Simulated assay, not measured.
Amino acid sequence: MSNHRIYTMSLASVYPLYISKAEKKGRTKSEVDEIICWLTGYTQEELEEQLKRQTDFETFFKYAPLPNPSRTLIKGVICGVRVEDIKEPTMQEIRYLDKLIDELAKGKAMDKILREK
């Protein structure tokens, strides 16, 4: 899938997959929301509005109110690529989110996922 197709996909189209992945492993929708809000700076209400609007990934990340500076601490491989080596900023943000959801589904503690010491 080309980067352009990923960028133009709405967050709302992928969001249920994030929830499903988390819930299959005993995690919750609220934890998924917490991760997204931590990463981007959106409030819960703002996140819900972005989902309702069917905002595409590129716009969602471009207008994120307060991208968390600790997101650069996210390291590792997702979809066969090291997230810290991704050069294109929007793709890196998308993969940061994918990585955090993956960590949630693997049972990692929230304080570790959110890079809190």
Rank of each mutant, 00 (worst) to 15 (best):
36 I>L: 07
23 E>A: 10
29 K>F: 07
96 Y>D: 00
38 W>R: 00
76 G>I: 05
40 T>M: 08
16 P>G: 07
85 D>P: 00
68 N>F: 13
82 R>L: 11
67 P>T: 14
7 Y>K: 04
65 P>Q: 14
35 I>T: 06
46 E>Q: 15
59 T>P: 00
67 P>N: 12
48 E>L: 11
96 Y>C: 02
68 N>V: 12
101 I>E: 00
50 Q>C: 09
24 K>A: 09
25 K>G: 08
57 F>L: 10
81 V>R: 09
115 R>A: 05
112 K>Q: 14
4 H>A: 13
26 G>Y: 01
23 E>Q: 15
57 F>M: 07
89 P>M: 12
83 V>Q: 02
58 E>G: 03
6 I>Y: 13
34 E>S: 10
10 S>Q: 09
88 E>Q: 14
39 L>N: 01
61 F>C: 07
57 F>N: 04
8 T>F: 12
93 E>D: 12
38 W>Q: 04
80 G>S: 12
108 K>A: 02
64 A>S: 15
75 K>F: 10
16 P>Y: 02
75 K>M: 13
83 V>I: 15
36 I>N: 09
70 S>F: 06
34 E>L: 07
117 K>W: 08
85 D>Q: 14
92 Q>D: 04
41 G>P: 05
80 G>I: 11
46 E>T: 06
95 R>V: 07
68 N>S: 15
